[in-house]
Design a binder for these strands. Structure first.
Length: 577
RNA sequence: CGAGGUGUAGCGCAGUUUGGUAGCGCGCUUGGUUCGGGACCAAGAGGUCGCAAGUUCAAGUCUUGUCACCUCGACCA
């Protein structure tokens, strides 16, 4: 491709509202153009990089016997009602009516379509297992898109669906997919990624893993143990606690605390630390009356994802309407008289003694509260784990201190079970002639987000450093002094030679100064830069430089093709799995 | 949904306090000189100042409404 004719403009300045490196470089390099909130157009180089990523994904999916299919973007309401998700998914699903007033929606994932397709073509166990997948545009009306291509409303996703007769068969395939995902990310030039156990979210199912690129800009928090290798998303990470030091129970007493409501204020007033208190956090249940009150140790925070999983209900922020009977700021376990509420006891308060807690009346707290002594029905309390893991807390597996890092979710895999095949009534005959629901797995990769993540991990202060496997072009020719006939002729000749030998090349044939061309070459980040100039041609040479290196080499014009091929081979070796 | 911010040329911004001919830098066009790390000179093109209504002799500027975008928040009782 010729730079001079590219529909693209590089810029020196980063737009003021851009916060992260990949977004900045994608915009400055002219790869993407924001069209609306969370919706981008891609220029040719971005498209080429995406196609390279898709090619890697296709190869790996085909390698685990995937069949590339295609599901519709637009689907009727009825299909999604059959799985129950038409109502269970909120406003992130875009809905509209067609000309006849029929309710339609834009696909945000395709379990329903996959089951719809599979159930009509598959009647017996002899066809199973199989996996179907697609790479296609999804639309999710995210509440807050951000970070350029990191969180989009319209995006490209590879989504795969596998069907099995037994759980064992699913697990076996799941492990193959798990390995295939590692190969995809490795081949695409990612280094610092890991798989962690994750929440099921809207998918439902038995087990899920997320593939995370460890990065400070990641939106997810990951809990890791360097000692035993425990890895989990914060959303599902289990907590274990230091047991309270043994102490004699002191008499329960009510103390005046006035306006002190927040944990820290109460602690300051009573001269205690937050881990000696029990606090209450109140939620509302989405679409239902009443509240959920969570009691947990004052130094802990509620993990809403774990709470949702425990309740099996969606919770939302609670707003005090003054009618709930709740003494906000002074809520305690003892004599809680709130109406219509579900009470959740976190394991952090089990068997605690001498704690500070709300007195369930304004301006008062209790001190020396001992849950087993002061609650008549304490034995019937079922404690659950709903708090967030903290940095340094003991690993639930080996007890060593945990560390927290941020991660960008670049892919996920789920063991769905029969959630969709049951609800959508997909059955096949087994060996004994009985009708059974196949067991499903599903496997997603965010393609655009992968591009952004690759750039997050592969750039310097001058621009992108594309892995050779993903780079839109392998070679970037900078023709210096294109007004010089011999230089122009040689650059043209080399460009055509590379292209005709299957080496994708970006040819900067513009009549601009060397500095501009070098800056653009660094910004766009192709792995090999070739400088064709009168200076080099004087000795019959051109200059080759790798984007990731600072040293260049001089190569005779006639040896260029061979040398470029060798460099590509060398660069590619890094990304073999 | 809540709070804050921003909408002026393709991009980045000034101008708004105090109403009075639409500005700067980058980019773009033409000519010339340069040219191996974001060159210089000269001459140009390009904007109904997000949109709508209002106040005024006069609105980018004041008033009201509205739309869009950005950031943070939407557990810490």
């Amino acid at each position: 491709m010729r730079f001079g004719k590219l529909c693209l403009q590089t810029t020196r300045e980063t737009p003021a509202d851009v916060k992260i490196a990949s977004h900045s470089l994608l915009v400055r390099g002219g790869f993407v153009k924001s069209l609306a909130n969370g919706i981008f157009s891609h220029t040719a180089p971005a498209r080429l990089a995406i196609l390279n990523i898709e090619r890697i994904i296709r190869e790996e999916m085909n390698n685990i016997d995937g069949q590339e299919c295609r599901f519709p973007v637009v689907m009727p309401k009825e299909l999604w009602e059959s799985s129950g998700r038409y109502t269970s998914i909120g406003s992130e699903m875009a809905r509209f009516k067609d000309r006849n007033g029929k309710d339609m929606l834009l696909g945000m994932t395709h379990e329903e379509a996959a089951v719809h397709l599979a159930k009509s073509f598959v009647g017996s166990y002899q066809s199973l297992p199989f996996m179907i997948y697609q790479i296609q545009t999804k639309f999710r009306d995210e509440p807050r898109p951000r970070g350029g291509l990191i969180r989009l409303r319209e995006f490209t996703m590879k989504d795969a669906y596998s069907f099995h007769m037994t759980q064992e068969d699913l697990v076996e395939y799941y492990d193959k997919a798990y390995e295939a995902y590692h190969r995809v990310f490795k081949r695409a030039g990612m280094k610092n990624f890991i798989a962690v156990k994750s929440d099921m979210g809207m998918m439902g199912g038995d087990r899920a893993d997320e593939f995370m690129l460890i990065s400070p800009i990641g939106e997810d928090t990951l809990v890791l143990c360097d000692h035993c290798g425990y890895k989990a998303n914060m959303e599902v990470a289990s907590s274990v606690y230091d047991k309270q030091a043994p102490q004699l129970p002191l008499p329960l007493a009510e103390v005046f605390t006035g306006d002190a409501k927040e944990i820290q204020c109460v602690c300051d007033m009573l001269k205690v630390t937050p881990d000696c208190t029990i606090k209450a956090v109140v939620y509302a249940v989405k679409g239902e009356q009443g509240t959920v009150i969570v009691f947990l140790r004052g130094d802990r925070e509620v993990n809403e994802a774990k709470l949702r999983a425990v309740l099996g209900k969606n919770i939302v922020a609670w707003e005090n309407d003054g009618e709930s009977g709740i003494a906000a700021g002074n809520i305690g376990i003892k004599d809680l008289r709130a109406k219509n509420n579900t009470v959740v006891y976190d394991i952090s308060i089990a068997n605690t003694v001498n704690m500070v807690t709300g007195a369930n009346k304004p301006e008062y707290h209790l001190v020396n509260f001992c849950i087993d002594r002061d609650l008549p029905d304490s034995r019937s309390i079922k404690y659950v784990d709903v708090s967030k893991v903290k940095e340094g807390e003991a690993c639930p597996v080996c007890g060593q201190p945990l560390k927290l890092v941020n991660g960008i979710e670049i892919g996920n895999i789920f063991q769905l079970g029969t959630k969709y095949t049951k609800s959508m009534n997909m059955t096949v005959l087994n060996e004994r002639g009985e009708l059974v629901n196949p067991i499903m797995g599903c496997y997603g990769i965010g393609v655009d987000r992968m591009l952004a993540s690759i750039i997050e991990e592969n750039h310097d202060d001058k621009g992108i450093i594309f892995p050779v496997t993903v780079a839109p072009f392998k070679v970037h020719i900078c023709g210096l002094r294109m007004d010089d006939p011999q230089t122009k002729e040689t650059a043209e000749m080399l460009y055509k030679e590379l292209e005709s030998n299957g080496i994708s090349t970006l040819f900067d044939d513009r009549d601009l100064s060397a500095g501009v061309k070098f800056a653009d070459a660094d910004l766009l980040g192709m792995p090999i830069r070739m400088v064709v100039s009168p200076k080099g041609l004087k000795d019959g040479c051109v200059e080759l430089k790798l984007r990731k290196e600072s040293q260049s080499e001089r190569v005779p014009v006639e040896a260029v093709l061979e040398r470029v091929n060798a460099l590509i081979k060398e660069l590619s070796a890094e990304y073999y799995y």
